[in-house]
């Protein structure tokens, strides 16, 4: 059967030239750009003459909201911060991934470049890792609190930021208390966590950046698109990034979940942007988009609900 089909196809000069054209086009396209190939642009690279902010690594033991957890966090302070005015704030989940100089995001390099060009305001970055409950005895594993903190719906993580981390950083630096000057960002479960913080406390955070966000049923987050449609619009500006190669597993389909989120945000007339590429569950596309997404989030146009 197959052989007969081949014979028929090959006998037809028209069909074979069509086939050759298609194969050629695919090859050219492949050469031009591979799937999930998102190189970083100049705003993600250290530029000569651009002042670099400082990054300080610290650790935090929670006593109130996630008692017993320990974690690392980093504070980025741009060179332009002089303490005369309250700085804007941007919080990053999985902070280590966003702050490291050989990572996908190089967030502090992007901050340096955009703040220097006045394409985003003077903003202090707080890069926080998820908590760990250390083991009591040798040979035991520490309990990883990441999924519990990031995937759970509710206001616990927002309270952690508002009652523990922001006051602590605020002891040292003058930070804004305005929601319009506070943004939050994360990847995967850290992405849905960013959304949850703003959804629970839009009075405290108004800007969300989600990379391959887990709006799936890890711990009930698949409900958000339905909630967005049936809840009065909240004053949140949100940038979502996902790709067609993202996860499809027992918790859900990441590409479909992000498309559902985008459709719901559109339906409820949110100030949102959705960048849907062909990447997988990683930070490549989100990293390449970092400068553009920060420009868009921090642009001076008011958020949708306050229009």
């Amino acid at each position: 059967m197959m052989r007969a089909l081949c014979d028929t196809l090959c006998r037809s000069r028209f069909l074979s030239s069509c086939l050759a054209a298609v194969v050629g086009a695919v090859l050219v396209a492949r050469e031009a750009r591979a799937v999930d190939d998102y190189p970083l642009g100049p705003d993600s690279k250290v530029q000569e003459g651009v002042p670099q902010g400082t990054v300080t690594k610290l650790s935090w033991t929670s006593e109130k909201v996630y008692p017993g957890t320990v974690r690392d966090y980093w504070i980025y302070v741009p060179k332009q911060y002089d303490g005369s005015q309250p700085a804007n704030v941007m919080v990053f989940q999985d902070g280590g991934s966003y702050v490291k100089p050989d990572g996908d995001f190089l967030a502090t390099v992007v901050f340096d470049n955009l703040i220097y060009k006045k394409e985003m305001p003077v903003t202090i970055g707080i890069f926080i890792n998820p908590g760990v409950i250390p083991a009591a005895e040798a040979g035991q594993k520490p309990r990883q609190n990441r999924s519990f903190e990031y995937d759970s719906l509710g206001d616990q993580y927002a309270r952690f930021l508002l009652e523990e981390i922001l006051p602590e950083v605020g002891n040292q630096y003058k930070l804004t208390n305005e929601a319009s000057g506070r943004a939050i960002c994360g990847i995967s479960s850290g992405g849905i966590c960013a959304w949850t913080v703003a959804w629970e406390r839009p009075d405290a955070f108004s800007k969300v950046l989600s990379h391959v966000g887990s709006f799936t049923n890890i711990r009930g987050g698949h409900a958000y698109h339905a909630l967005i449609r049936k809840t009065e619009r909240k004053p949140i500006r949100v940038f979502l990034q996902d790709g067609s190669g993202d996860l499809d597993n027992v918790h859900g389909s990441w590409p479909l979940a992000n498309q559902e989120m985008a459709a719901a945000l559109k339906f409820s007339k949110y100030d949102y942007r959705f960048e849907y590429g062909d990447g997988g569950h990683n930070g490549k596309h989100g990293g390449a988009l970092m400068p553009e997404s920060l420009r868009w989030l921090w642009r001076t146009a008011p958020a949708a609900a306050s229009k």
Binding site: D94, R146, G186, S189, S214, T216, V250, H251, W254, H281
Partner: peptide, 15 residues
């Protein structure tokens, strides 16, 4: 090794 910390969304399904 290349995956960021965010890649913890992999599953452990009942199947």
């Amino acid at each position: 090794l290349l995956l960021p910390a965010g890649a913890g969304a992999q599953d452990m399904s009942v199947s």
